[in-house]
Design a protein around this nucleic acid. Structure first.
Length: 537
RNA sequence: GGCCCGUUCGUCUAGCGGUUUAGGACAUCGCCCUCUCAAGGCGAAGAUCACCAGUUCGAAUCUGGUACGGGCUACCA
């Protein structure tokens, strides 16, 4: 039997002590009507993505963000973006901006957070110091936390000793746990340095984490040591700050990386000490590189913006990442955002780590490109590419809309990355300065019979007037020539292709010539005759 | 060391005790289409379901162990 998932099982939690942090800041327990997915009355879903601005937004983080976002959307919930910038040495404002930009590119709109505001702010941990201090103070007063005066050296020695006697428990020795409160208070006031540690309740028994993807995961509370919640400089540690924030923000589902699963029982201790209900957890596996190791810089592009710049579509990227560890049904691979937002569920998240496969991303991108309308392709892919190449300008386009759409229809099936499109159209913008590819010339023009091919092609094309200058007519006019010349299509069309496009690889000839225009096409055929010289043997 | 997690085609996955000769997708290979390059169509190959025990009439699916990989065990997040 599969353990129940995604439910708020009360029986796996200890009865919470009276609240220490007032939880009346929001209406968490407002009764909602039962929904189809879960017949039990549930609170409104609130999830959060909480990146640390210590670097760019990476592929793994993006996937975590996508899962949170999709889960919120699928459940009519709220998606909160919080910046966990507690590490002042590694967090930067610039990284925050980069992350926000990446989130916007991914179109993962957040309901609360930086720039969006919300009732549970501020959404930067550095601005929530008072909350942590207040929570720590309450825990201290309630006896759920205690000051520890042990020095680093002492702790080091304790650990060493535990190792030496092969003690399976190598956590904190709890030396300061039972200090006389008055004495402790006196030492604190005397200015002796101390940290605050959580007091894991005696006889707590198993901590059962009800994980929506792993099922129930059991931890023996005896394995948990009284970990530090406030450092000697007064700043909160991660396991404390996140819980204070998640509790205060009313987060109902914590969807995050697998690496936090082992930390979860510690965090549960904090929830319980705080008197806050524990959320449902969902620990998703990490993303691996092709070598089976955790995806990192040495595997190439890892930041979201690198993918944007490499020519991937946001929609395709999100679709691909969504499928890394989640599936709609096992058969469907193209899952557009709206379907993802409707169908995403934690039940279908897989437990095992996934290897990032750039090839499949490429395929996915091509699929999304192919699905675009010609007009959209022009606006989103082709024209930006032409502008970047300095060939054209959206403000004063060189051609009419129909021309661009014809070009788009021809280029679309040939582009995998957005940047592929414009270079394929460059020959249309070369005018008299067409650059011929050397190898193409030697293989197709500097050949026996090439000159005759060009002459025949030139004549046939000249016979078409402007009104009938269309791909179909052009193809029809050239179709029979090779046979008449006693040559084959490959050689004939190869010569014409290189003459007009400069390369032996090009979009289909008829369309290429239509796009080039009658005058330019004829001029190029004429000019290329000079290249149709058979080299001396 | 201790605790926790994971293990189905090369890759992402479907699978929730009999419907499975383990399905789909990417990649690979072949054929077709074809004036190049793509796209497209059709098809092939590819997984003794990590291993070993057990439960069961029956296990990829349940249980236990082993191996391998990963995480946590910090005054990092």
């Amino acid at each position: 039997m599969r353990p129940p998932r995604g439910t708020e099982d009360a029986d796996v939690r200890a009865t919470p002590p009276p609240p220490i942090i007032p939880m009346d800041t929001h209406d968490r327990d407002a009764a909602r009507g039962p929904d189809e997915r879960n017949p039990m009355p549930t609170t409104d879903v609130r999830v959060r993505f909480a990146p640390s601005p210590t670097g760019k937004l990476h592929v793994g983080g993006a996937r975590t963000a996508i899962f949170n976002w999709a889960f919120a959307r699928a459940n009519g919930g709220t998606f909160v973006l919080r910046i966990d910038d507690t590490d002042p040495t590694r967090s930067t404002e610039e990284n925050t901006q980069v992350i926000l930009r990446a989130m916007r590119w991914l179109e993962l709109d957040w309901d609360e957070g930086p720039e969006a505001g919300g009732d549970f702010g501020p959404y930067f941990q550095t601005q929530r110091g008072d909350l942590y201090r207040e929570a720590a103070e309450r825990l201290l007063e309630a006896g759920a936390a205690y000051p520890c005066f042990c020095t680093t050296e002492q702790l080091e020695a304790d650990r060493e000793a535990a190792r030496a006697r092969k003690d399976p428990f190598q956590g904190y020795s709890r030396r300061c746990r039972d200090l006389d409160p008055a004495e402790a208070r006196a030492r604190m006031e005397a200015g002796e340095p101390y940290v605050l540690r959580i007091k894991v309740p005696e006889g707590r028994g198993d901590v059962v984490v009800d994980d929506a993807v792993h099922g129930q995961v059991r931890f023996d509370a005896k394995e948990l040591d009284d970990f530090v919640i406030v450092r000697s400089d007064g700043t909160p540690t991660y396991n404390f700050a996140t819980v204070v924030d998640d509790a205060a923000m009313g987060i109902t589902h914590v969807i995050r990386g697998d690496d936090h699963l082992s930390n979860t029982p510690r965090q549960v201790m904090v929830y319980e000490a705080l008197g806050a209900p524990t959320p449902t957890f969902a620990h998703i596996s990490m993303i691996l590189g092709p070598d089976g190791k955790k995806l990192s810089k040495r595997h190439g592009a890892t930041s979201v913006e690198e993918y944007r710049d490499a020519g991937y579509l946001s929609d395709a990227f999100v679709n691909y990442l969504a499928l890394l560890g989640w599936s709609l049904d096992g058969d469907t691979t193209i899952v557009p955002r709206d379907v993802l937002c409707r169908e995403f569920s934690l039940e279908r998240v897989s437990k095992n780590p996934a290897t990032f496969d750039p090839k499949k991303l490429d395929w996915m991108n091509a699929e999304y490109l192919a699905a675009m309308s010609d007009a959209d392709f022009v606006d989103a892919v082709l024209m930006p590419g032409l502008e970047d190449a300095g060939l054209d300008s959206a403000a004063s386009p060189a051609h009419d809309a129909a021309w661009y759409e014809l070009l788009a229809s021809v280029l679309k099936p040939r582009t995998k990355l957005t940047g592929d499109a414009a270079p394929m159209a460059a020959f249309l913008y070369a005018g008299d300065e067409l650059a011929y590819d050397e190898k193409s010339v030697s293989k197709n023009l500097a050949k026996e019979g090439a000159l005759a091919s060009l002459e025949a092609a030139g004549e046939a094309l000249a016979a078409l007037d402007d009104a009938s200058w269309h791909a179909d007519a052009i193809d029809a006019a050239l179709e029979a020539i090779p046979e008449r010349l006693g040559t084959n299509k490959r050689k004939f069309f190869g010569a014409v292709r290189v003459a007009t496009t400069g390369n032996q690889v090009s979009p289909p000839l008829g369309a290429s010539l239509e796009l080039l225009g009658r005058d330019a096409a004829l001029a190029r055929v004429e000019a290329a005759k000079a290249l149709a010289v058979v080299p001396e043997a």
